[in-house]
C-alpha cells in the first residue's frame, strides 16, 4: 500500500487511529472476500471506500462493526474491539438496506433505539440534523427510500459517534435525495466526525471524500486523494508535436509507461506528467504541449477490472 499519499500519516505519529485494520482476512469457505487488508484511518478523515460489487467493502465494514468475525487479522476502532466501540457509542453505522421496523413512526423508532443506549443526543436533535423533523409522525413504511436512509442516519447520530460508517448509503436514491443526504453528512463531518463510506458511485467518492481507498478482490489497490487515485490508475496523457521523435528514447523516460509516435505527434502515457512536460519543453523542440487527465470513472475501471499484473505498478 502506498503510504506516501496518506496526508495524515505524515503529521500523526502516536495518535490512536479511528480505524486500524491489520492483515484483515475473511474467508467464506473457499472464497476469500477480504484478503490481508491493511488500512489506517486517522480521526477527522472523510474516506471513501470505493470498489465494484463483490470487492469486499461490505464484508470489511461488517468486521469493523463486529457483525462478522475476521478469519485472520485484527480490527481496532479507536483502539477498541468493535463490540466495545459500539458499547461506548464511538462507532455507528448506516447500513445499505433493511434494519428498520415498518409499522412504527419515525419518532418512535428513534425513541426506541435511544432506549438501547445509556445516554444519547436528544431525539428532536437527531431528527433535525438528519433533516426529517417534519416527518417525525410518519410511519416508516410510508417513507421514501431517501427518507428511510436519513432515518438510518438519525439513528446512527444518537450515540454521537466519533466514527460514522455508511455502507452504500445512497443506493436507490434519486439525484436530489442523494444531494440532500450528502449535504447532511458533509455538514456533520465538518464538526470533526470521522466518516467512512462505501460506494460504487465514483462521483460521490470524488465529490465528498478527502481520501479514496480503492479496493478490489478484498485488497487495497489504490489509496490517496481523488486526483492521486486518478493519476495512479490512468496516469496522464502528454501530447505534443515533435518532428522526428525517437519513440524508444521517449518510452524510456522516467514515469512513462507507453509512448506512441503518430507522424509528428507524440502521445506519452505517464504518471509523471510534470517531469515529462519539463523534459519535452526544455530538452526537445516539442510544441503544442497538452496534458489530459482521465476521469475518475476511467481510473476506477482501470484499477478494478485490470489483471493482477497490471496493478503491481500502481498499488506500490
Amino acid at each position: 500500500m502506498r503510504t506516501d499519499t496518506l496526508a495524515a500519516s505524515e503529521t500523526t505519529g502516536t495518535r490512536t487511529p479511528a480505524v486500524l485494520l491489520r492483515g484483515l482476512t475473511k474467508k467464506f469457505g473457499a472464497v476469500t472476500a477480504v484478503n490481508q487488508l491493511d488500512l489506517r484511518i486517522e480521526p477527522g478523515e472523510v474516506v471513501a471506500f470505493l470498489g465494484p460489487n463483490g470487492a469486499g467493502k461490505t464484508t470489511t465494514i461488517d468486521m469493523m462493526l463486529g457483525l462478522a468475525r475476521p478469519t485472520q487479522g485484527s480490527v481496532e476502532v479507536y483502539g477498541l474491539a468493535p463490540t466495545e466501540a459500539i458499547n461506548q457509542g464511538r462507532i455507528a453505522a448506516v447500513m445499505q438496506t433493511g434494519g428498520l421496523l415498518k409499522d412504527v413512526s419515525v419518532a418512535e423508532i428513534v425513541r426506541m433505539t435511544a432506549s438501547f443506549f445509556a445516554n444519547t443526543r436528544p431525539v428532536d436533535e437527531v431528527l433535525e440534523r438528519a433533516g426529517i423533523a417534519d416527518i417525525a409522525d410518519r410511519r416508516v413504511a410510508k417513507c421514501s427510500g431517501g427518507q428511510q436512509q436519513r432515518l438510518r442516519f438519525a439513528l446512527a447520530l444518537l450515540p454521537d459517534p466519533d466514527l460514522m460508517v455508511l455502507d452504500e448509503p445512497t443506493t436507490g436514491m434519486d439525484v436530489e435525495g442523494r444531494r440532500d443526504f450528502w449535504n447532511a453528512i458533509r455538514t456533520d463531518a465538518q464538526a470533526g466526525r470521522t466518516v467512512l463510506f462505501a460506494t460504487h458511485y465514483l462521483e460521490e467518492a470524488d465529490a465528498y471524500a478527502d481520501r479514496i481507498v480503492l479496493i478490489r478482490k478484498g485488497q487495497v489497490v489504490a489509496d490517496g486523494t481523488a486526483s492521486e487515485v486518478k493519476a495512479l490508475a490512468a496516469g496522464r496523457q502528454v501530447r505534443a508535436t515533435l518532428p522526428g521523435a525517437d519513440e524508444v528514447r521517449l518510452a524510456a523516460l522516467p514515469g512513462v509507461d507507453r509512448a506512441e509516435v503518430r507522424g509528428e505527434t507524440v502521445l506519452l502515457h505517464t504518471n509523471d506528467s510534470d517531469g515529462v512536460a519539463r523534459y519535452l519543453l526544455t530538452q526537445t523542440t516539442a510544441r503544442d504541449l497538452e496534458i489530459t487527465s482521465r476521469n475518475l470513472e476511467d481510473a476506477f475501471l482501470a484499477l478494478t477490472s485490470g489483471e493482477d499484473t497490471d496493478l503491481e505498478g500502481v498499488s506500490r
Binding site: L65, L67, L100, T113
Partner: peptide
C-alpha cells in the same frame, strides 16, 4: 426486516 441486525449495532 434486518431489525435484529440493526440491534447489534447498539449496546
Amino acid at each position: 426486516q434486518g431489525w435484529s441486525r440493526q440491534l447489534r449495532l447498539t449496546p
